[in-house]
Nucleic acid binder design. Structure first.
Length: 329
DNA sequence: GGGGTTCAAAGAAAGTGTAG
DNA sequence: CTACACTTTCTTTGAACCCC
């Protein structure tokens, strides 16, 4: 039974009166008004409900469906499933993004470890991606750990920037066998590393030798002449060995007392025995010249051969030229 | 001791065959 | 088609040794 008067009276401070028996002895039990005389439970709630300031805003209600508390509090709360779910979605990356990130990190690591110019990084990234895309899915060189060192090596070689292969192999996660196995395949992705570029690199090395040992331009031109004359016979080997071979021949012909062959070899990081083997095979064996003893012992024989071929025109002529160049200095 | 010589061994290159 | 094992040949290395 609803007693409207009672409700009105309550707000005005009046005493409660039972509707049934008229008694004023009203008790409160479990938040309700109960008449002590007849036991009638009154329809009036003990706790009055007051409307908030605005009809659409209710105090203590959740403001929105997802946000509880301050942002920082939410972030600190490790148990927030909501936050965990959202951050998982937020941080989710597709395979490509993960791969790109991995490629960049690996290239940076190698460039950093080998002290190579960082400016080439983006170009190498492009190259790696292009090569990787052209490889059949599932093949082992699609693995960035294997692919990147090889691409970096080829790239630097193509840019004529000297790169230490041993050091590269040491710091990268590809073994020597795989590295060399893929080198041939990868060459088709680079503009042809042609003979002219190889010659240019060797010329640069010869120039380096002539500067380091102060041999002058005459030595450079002589070495270059030897290089171009014997090019077809000596080209099929490493650049440093070719450079060492031609500069050693030049030294043995005209500059024997000025600089030891072993010094040239250590400058180029090659072994003297390598040069000896090359000279024996490429010059003496190829031209059918008997009497080769050893590199330095056969210097005179070598010099005669060079004169015969026409690389050294005349001993006196060359000596005169040397004097002239040295006097010019 | 620096420069040069010798030679065995490592290892790179290229080819072939086979399995998956 | 690729990876891998194996072979042969050639190149390069490295260390012991020699000589002045």
């Amino acid at each position: 039974m609803i007693i409207n008067e009672n409700y009105n009276n309550l707000s005005k401070g009046y005493e409660l009166k039972c509707d049934e028996c008229g008694s004023f002895e009203i008790d409160t039990i479990n938040g309700e008004y109960v008449c002590k005389s007849c036991g009638l439970v009154l329809n009036i709630k003990k706790l009055d409900y007051n409307k908030p300031f605005k009809d659409d805003k209710i105090q203590n209600n959740i403001i929105s469906s997802t946000k509880i508390g301050h942002k920082c509090e939410r972030l600190k709360n490790g148990h927030s499933i909501q936050i965990q779910r959202l951050s998982k979605i937020h941080s989710a990356k597709n395979t490509n993004e993960v791969l790109n990130h991995r490629i960049r990190i690996e290239i940076s690591r190698i460039l950093n470890a080998l002290n190579l110019p960082f400016s080439y990084r983006e170009m190498i990234v492009k190259k790696v991606k292009a090569i990787r895309n052209s490889l059949t899915p599932g093949t082992k060189y699609r693995n960035p750990d294997k692919l990147i060192p090889i691409v970096v090596y080829m790239f630097m070689k193509f840019q004529k920037i000297s790169i230490n292969k041993e050091q590269l192999l040491e710091i990268s996660r590809v073994n020597k066998r795989d590295f060399h196995a893929f080198l041939l395949t990868i060459q088709k992705f680079f503009p042809k590393y042609d003979e002219e570029k190889k010659k240019a690199y060797i010329n640069q090395k010869i120039m380096e030798i002539s500067e380091v040992f102060d041999l002058g331009m005459q030595f450079y031109f002589l070495s270059k002449k030897i290089l171009y004359t014997f090019w077809d016979a000596i080209k099929c080997t490493k650049e440093n060995v070719v450079a060492g071979l031609v500069s050693s021949i030049a030294v043995l012909c005209n500059y024997k007392d000025k600089v030891p062959i072993s010094a040239i070899c250590s400058q180029l990081n090659i072994q003297m025995s390598t040069i000896q083997a090359q000279v024996e095979r490429r010059i003496f064996d190829a031209l059918n010249i008997p009497g080769f003893q050893s590199l330095v012992k056969s210097a005179d024989l070598l010099k005669d051969t060079m004169v015969k071929i026409g690389i050294l025109n005349d001993n006196r002529f060359d000596e005169n030229l040397n004097e002239r160049t040295s006097s010019r200095k």
